[in-house]
Simulated assay, not measured.
Amino acid sequence: MARSFSATCGPDGLHQHLAGLRSAVPSASGGVVFVSGQLAQRASSVAELVRTTWRGVPACVVPAAGVLSERGEIEGDTAASGVLWSGGKVTPFALPERAAEPGRALGEALVRTVGHRSATAILFARPGAFAPDMLEALALCAPNACLFGAGTASGSAVGVTAQGELLEGPTTGLAITGFAPPLVDASPAARLLSGFHAVEETSGGVVLRAGGRPALDLLSAATAALGEQASAQPRMFVALADPPAPSPRGEAEGPAAPRYVLRPIRGVDPSRRGILIGDDARPGARLAFAVRDAAAGRAGLEGIARQISRSALGSAPRFALYLSCAGRGQGLYGAPDVEARILRQRFADLPIAGMHSSFEIAPWAPGQARLALNTGVLALFRAPS
């Protein structure tokens, strides 16, 4: 059993919604509450409200740029959405402030919470306190975990334990066991403008050469491919993919577009014909260029929702979480509720809650995740088979 809500509201209205969900799910085992606007600035106070209203139920309160449910999306307002469910065991955990090795410390916190059992870890990270390499260290500590999540709007998410303790840190999460692993997938709202090229030379976060050419020449060619659209100052990204995986026969993978994550282009180095992308500039990775695109965003979400729905056939879906970049929504589509409508058309009245995030933590491979931008992450939770 699960129930969701979303509403434009202040603390009094939020209390009514929380109480309504608690009455509807009397045997609740966990929940998530996303808050935006003034409520996001008072996440600790909201956590106190959750602690008293959902007494004994572990949960997480997440500051968001906007909130959403299967009913619609609320942007630019003080609002909340959430989901409360029964089934499984839910345990909040948090990364300590000023940890010497944040990725390792986060992995150790997760292992202390669930041991080495298979588990789902939903991570909510504070912007500026989370780096992509933390996920690599986390995967080494907890290789059996299903990892996904998002960046908060500003401050830290707050965990509420079943005993009423409040947990807060640069990254706060929920560890879930006893459910079937969720079906999780992600799609960027971007259109590729080039093929992928192997990165051959880097220096201090600058990609100098890829595919046998100066990186800046590749960027110029991709920009030229936009044609007349270039005058509209489209938002450009670097798309990064892993090196090709060899097949069992020792051959590289085929020509299909690989799974990729987006990174901003932070600058150019005309003297060396390079482009600055930061710590992700590593020889061996594959690089392409992409542009933010509404049609690609719609098609991508429709595609992962369709695939997840097919994969769920024969099981009993309970609820879903959808974590969507704050750069999507009305700012991308020019209309409200585009993504909420896609989810409702595919999953009907399934309880869904989610947020507009500062960045996304997207599934990548078993036990692995990547920091992503301009991406939507959809997770469908099912009853154990």
Results as ranks from 00 to 15, higher is better:
residue 326 A to V: 13
residue 373 L to H: 08
residue 137 A to F: 09
residue 21 L to V: 11
residue 17 H to N: 10
residue 206 V to P: 03
residue 376 G to I: 11
residue 281 A to R: 12
residue 103 G to C: 01
residue 25 V to G: 07
residue 267 G to H: 09
residue 320 A to H: 09
residue 138 L to T: 08
residue 99 A to V: 14
residue 114 V to E: 09
residue 339 E to Q: 04
residue 24 A to D: 15
residue 12 D to Y: 11
residue 27 S to R: 10
residue 94 A to K: 12
residue 37 G to V: 07
residue 378 L to Q: 03
residue 311 S to Q: 15
residue 305 A to H: 02
residue 128 G to S: 06
residue 344 R to K: 04
residue 293 D to M: 10
residue 203 S to E: 15
residue 219 L to V: 09
residue 234 P to A: 06
residue 46 V to D: 03
residue 124 F to C: 15
residue 260 Y to G: 05
residue 288 A to C: 11
residue 54 W to R: 10
residue 202 T to L: 12
residue 356 H to A: 14
residue 211 G to E: 08
residue 180 A to K: 00
residue 183 L to K: 03
residue 161 T to A: 05
residue 208 L to Y: 06
residue 27 S to I: 05
residue 5 F to E: 01
residue 46 V to G: 05
residue 99 A to L: 12
residue 282 R to G: 09
residue 182 P to C: 06
residue 142 A to R: 04
residue 306 R to M: 12
residue 221 A to E: 02
residue 48 E to Y: 07
residue 228 E to A: 03
residue 314 G to A: 11
residue 355 M to C: 07
residue 145 A to C: 05
residue 368 Q to I: 09
residue 239 A to T: 01
residue 329 G to K: 00
residue 317 P to D: 02
residue 269 D to R: 13
residue 339 E to K: 04
residue 6 S to W: 13
residue 1 M to L: 13
residue 385 S to E: 11
residue 353 A to M: 02
residue 172 T to E: 00
residue 201 E to T: 11
residue 245 A to M: 04
residue 263 R to D: 13
residue 213 R to I: 01
residue 141 C to I: 08
residue 7 A to L: 11
residue 287 L to V: 03
residue 249 R to P: 02
residue 292 R to D: 01
residue 197 H to E: 05
residue 109 A to T: 12
residue 26 P to A: 14
residue 202 T to R: 08
residue 156 S to I: 04
residue 92 P to I: 07
residue 28 A to R: 00
residue 72 G to Y: 01
residue 143 P to H: 12
residue 286 R to A: 11
residue 44 S to D: 15
residue 294 A to T: 04
residue 315 S to H: 15
residue 46 V to L: 01
residue 224 A to C: 12
residue 140 L to D: 11
residue 37 G to R: 04
residue 352 I to Y: 01
residue 302 E to I: 12
residue 117 R to P: 05
residue 211 G to L: 06
residue 55 R to A: 15
residue 207 V to P: 02
residue 23 S to V: 07
residue 294 A to K: 05
residue 112 R to V: 00
residue 195 G to P: 13
residue 134 M to G: 04
residue 233 Q to P: 07
residue 100 A to T: 14
residue 354 G to T: 01
residue 110 L to M: 15
residue 224 A to S: 14
residue 369 A to G: 05
residue 272 R to E: 15
residue 161 T to W: 07
residue 360 E to L: 02
residue 355 M to D: 06
residue 356 H to I: 08
residue 143 P to G: 10
residue 34 F to G: 00
residue 376 G to R: 12
residue 278 G to F: 01
residue 351 P to A: 06
residue 135 L to F: 01
residue 3 R to T: 10
residue 20 G to T: 08
residue 50 V to P: 06
residue 241 A to G: 10
residue 373 L to Y: 04
residue 50 V to Y: 06
residue 331 G to P: 07
residue 52 T to H: 04
residue 74 I to T: 05
residue 24 A to I: 09
residue 351 P to N: 09
residue 179 F to K: 10
residue 23 S to K: 08
residue 216 L to G: 03
residue 227 G to P: 02
residue 26 P to Q: 14
residue 274 G to L: 05
residue 150 A to H: 03
residue 257 A to I: 15
residue 80 A to Q: 07
residue 132 P to N: 08
residue 64 A to N: 10
residue 160 V to H: 08
residue 161 T to Q: 07
residue 163 Q to L: 09
residue 14 L to S: 09
residue 341 R to A: 14
residue 36 S to C: 14
residue 179 F to Y: 10
residue 381 F to Y: 02
residue 290 A to S: 02
residue 168 E to T: 13
residue 40 A to I: 13
residue 37 G to F: 06
residue 121 A to V: 15
residue 273 R to H: 03
